[in-house]
Amino acid sequence: MSTQTAQELELAKLLVNALDLEDIAAEDINPEAPLFDPSHADSLGLDSIDALEISLAVAKHYKVQLKADDENNKAIFFSLRSLSDYINSQRG
């Protein structure tokens, strides 16, 4: 597993907290594993309800509004890393 950056760890903590993932330690989330594909060994197995929760937490914490009409939405939400990169790019 590739190691998390400090920003990724901050986002991982936000996700674990927002989604009540009581089984998962933020440090243990593989930053490159898919967040939503439950058939993948390291995936968090999230679904659309979680995506909505994530959007609220991200808006509150980073002041970044996520949008589904963005063509890259699937790419943005693919992994902890891609989501973190996107948030960084939007914060300017």
């Binding site: 009540d20 009581e22 089984d23 439950p38 058939s39 060994a41 197995g45 999230l46 679904d47 309800i49």
Partner: peptide, 21 residues
Amino acid sequence: PEKHILQQLALQMDAAFLPRP
């Protein structure tokens, strides 16, 4: 392992119903 059971369940049901925890 829990992970294996969850993966097997994911093949058969919507992710909304995957047990938490």
